[in-house]
Nucleic acid binder design. Structure first.
Lengths: 236, 236
DNA sequence: AACAGGAATATGTCTATACAAAAGGAATTG
DNA sequence: CAATTCCTTTTGTATAGACATATTCCTGTT
């Protein structure tokens, strides 16, 4: 069933699958040491580079653990990694088949509040834009967005009025490849959030917070609140 | 500042960084076509395989988009990918410095309820184990776990009593490399959940649901509820 | 027994070359 | 004009060989 008798050719995908299946059927148990690349490449009848890529990717995926000289082992505690896609709100809504609507609620220029200075390292002398807006899926409230943007980092933002394009979307196109921290939590709807999401105060909301930097320069902080029906999904 | 004058040697990491920085400084804007691998390998003074690995990894990370014959472009709408670590509860608590405590609440053998048959494809003739348990961080409730395990898929589970080891941990060590679906949402605490998490009914809880299969065979479904203070964090 | 140093070894990466496969584009044909 | 076929470009992958680098393990010394 194994022992590749030079069928077609052995690609790194096949090697990966074979290794995975051997882990599944307990040929190699948790923590166990696998044969070296040279030995495996001999078994599979392929080049070492092929086995290397297979094992390297499996390590990247959290299945194997590799150390020079020590060899490759099956990971003990599968600290699993879940990968979520974080699309632009409009795309997320449109993908569900519903019509997307957007409304600007508030736009003001302020000096950064203390918590924002502390959270992101915004300079107290700088000014920030505070934007609140709503995203709708059809006629249902989908997301309330409360966002702060560092003007010093993105001067052009003063020209953007956000009446037709959401700050989310505007920033994504304007600031490439920024570093971000995201967190998710559950929270009670404040009066303000409840009003916009058409809930009662205190009802549960799903909250996503996102802080973004470009090369250590604070760009934006956003708090996005979803009604209880929202679900963040991932398969792995 | 660029044009690698054969300093040391050009590795795929350097190529990656260089490409990323050129995207950041808008040398290559969103959607723009990059030079081909051959041309870039000439510019960088390295082999095509090196450029290939750099670009391939950047594509994997969601920065570039590659298509045969069409070439490589900077991704337009950075559908960002967030990667979360999903550790074992005990490790998560212990990593925070707190003492971990665990308590089994309920363990019963049943025929699978309809929703479980529908959700996971459990055979109605099979039996399932229903387990409820609590995880504490110090003296504070950390997570309420409500889990169903397909006995047909993991016969050994009938011998496990889960009084000292949580089903989470037991399964992770017993069933390797299973496929899973995870979802997160916010919800109101039911009377039962509120009692165990020491909350009032209706207070918001953070809910993680997880369904697991091994080669299409349904293994387990778990619903894990956290108090409002819980945060799922990722940086990218 | 403790420690230092060196040899051995497994992985990490780069190179050059070759062929495969996808897909855009042009030429051909109905 | 539209559909089809074929050519060509670009990425995808495999290979053999080489050297780099991190670590373990062993050995000899104190």
């Amino acid at each position: 069933m194994s022992e590749n008798a030079s069928a077609e050719r052995t690609g790194f995908r096949e090697v990966k699958e074979d290794i995975v299946s051997r882990i599944k059927n307990r040929t190699w148990g948790p923590g166990e040491l696998l044969p070296g690349e040279v030995e495996l490449s001999r078994q599979f009848g392929c080049a070492r580079a092929t086995v290397n890529r297979a094992m390297r990717e499996l390590a990247e995926e959290g299945v194997l653990e590799r150390k020079r000289k020590a060899g490759t082992r099956v990971v003990q505690n599968p600290v699993r990694h879940a990968r979520f896609e974080i699309p632009i709100v409009r795309h997320e809504v449109e993908a569900s088949g519903a019509e997307y609507r957007y409304a600007l609620v508030k736009r003001e220029v302020l000096t950064p509040p203390d918590w924002l200075q502390a959270r992101m390292g915004v300079n107290s002398a700088d000014r920030v834009i505070h934007v609140q807006c709503m995203h709708y899926s059809g006629n249902s409230p989908y997301q309330f967005e409360d966002r702060w943007i560092n003007i010093a980092a993105v001067p052009k933002v003063e020209q953007a009025d956000f009446t037709s394009t959401s700050p989310n979307e505007w920033l994504v196109n304007e600031v490439p490849l920024s570093k971000a921290e995201i967190s998710f939590s559950a929270s009670s709807a404040s009066d303000e959030v409840a009003r916009f999401l058409e809930l009662k105060s205190g009802e549960p909301v799903f909250v996503a917070e996102r802080a973004t930097w470009l090369e250590e320069l604070p760009i934006t902080y956003a708090r996005m609140s979803f009604p209880e029906s929202y679900r963040l999904v991932s398969s792995l």
